[in-house]
Simulated assay, not measured.
Amino acid sequence: MAHIDYYFSTLSPFAYLAGRGLEEIAARHGASVTYKPLDIMALFARTGGTPPAERHPSRNAYRAQDLPRQAKKRGMPLNLKPAFWPTNPAPSSYAIIAAQEAGGGDMGSLVHSVLRACWAEERNIAEDEVVRDCLTAAGFDPDLANRGLLSGAETYAANLEDAVNAGAFGSPFYVVDSGQSFWGQDRLEDLDLHLAGKL
């Protein structure tokens, strides 16, 4: 059975636009997934990336055109300039880490609900109430938002190191145990084909 390490930031619009694609692909091929939220700004610093605020105006202008196009293509609502972005990604990331450790809910739903809260619902994913709502909606104990903060911080830092070692440099980034990696929501089709043995 194939395994996928999924590196992502809870602030990433492209991770949001991936929707439930990863979960659908994993289910189709019987693959397991480990969710690895990380500090995307630290990843950029380690791997030669540039934060959006520091990018050339032409790159940001293209991003402003492309994100709405991709959202429309997928039939997904998107606020190009969310009210609470950027915000602190740690609380939502720690909750995802705690939920994965605890089990009992739907991880894909949890991750997508956090991303949707930021990019479609104008909610601040740094706020405890928002994180608790996302946990509850995905079938997890909302109190996970308050537990395991130290281990969550340790795993969050470890995920960054794992990402660098795995060759990840953006979000979403998918690494299969076959050694193949796929960057971006627009490479989910390639991931699907790879798991089917066609790529």
Rank of each mutant, 00 (worst) to 15 (best):
M1K: 11
H3G: 10
H3R: 12
I4E: 06
S9G: 11
T10S: 06
L11K: 05
L17V: 05
A18N: 05
G19I: 02
G19C: 01
G19S: 06
E23K: 00
E23Y: 05
I25R: 00
A26I: 03
A26T: 06
A27V: 00
R28A: 13
H29L: 04
H29R: 08
G30I: 15
A31V: 07
A31K: 01
A31P: 09
V33Q: 00
T34H: 07
P37Y: 04
L38E: 14
D39H: 13
M41G: 09
A42N: 06
A42M: 04
A45E: 15
A45R: 10
R46W: 10
R46N: 13
T47R: 12
G48Y: 15
G48W: 15
T50V: 15
P52A: 07
A53R: 14
A53P: 14
E54K: 13
E54A: 14
R55E: 14
R55W: 14
H56M: 08
P57A: 15
N60S: 12
R63F: 07
D66A: 05
P68E: 01
R69H: 12
K72N: 01
K72W: 09
K73P: 00
R74D: 01
R74E: 07
M76E: 11
L78T: 05
N79D: 10
L80S: 01
K81P: 00
K81Y: 10
A83I: 00
W85Q: 09
W85T: 06
P86N: 02
T87V: 10
A90P: 07
Y94C: 02
A99N: 09
A99G: 06
E101Y: 02
E101C: 00
E101P: 04
G103R: 02
G103E: 09
G104H: 09
G105M: 07
G105K: 03
D106T: 06
G108V: 03
S109A: 09
V111Q: 07
H112R: 05
R116C: 04
R116G: 02
A117P: 11
A117Y: 11
W119N: 03
D128V: 12
V130T: 15
V130M: 02
V131P: 07
V131Q: 06
V131Y: 07
R132S: 09
D133Y: 00
A138R: 04
A138Y: 10
D141E: 11
D143H: 10
L144Y: 02
L144V: 03
L144D: 12
A145E: 13
R147P: 11
R147M: 06
G148W: 03
G148R: 03
L150A: 11
L150Q: 09
L150S: 09
S151E: 09
E154D: 08
T155D: 01
N159Y: 07
L160Q: 07
V164D: 13
A166H: 11
A168S: 14
A168E: 15
F169E: 14
F169P: 08
F173P: 08
Y174Q: 03
V175D: 13
V175W: 10
V176R: 05
V176C: 12
D177V: 08
S178F: 07
G179P: 11
Q180E: 15
S181G: 02
W183E: 11
G184E: 13
L188A: 01
E189H: 05
D190P: 00
L191P: 02
D192K: 00
D192A: 00
L193P: 00
K198H: 08
L199V: 00
L199C: 04
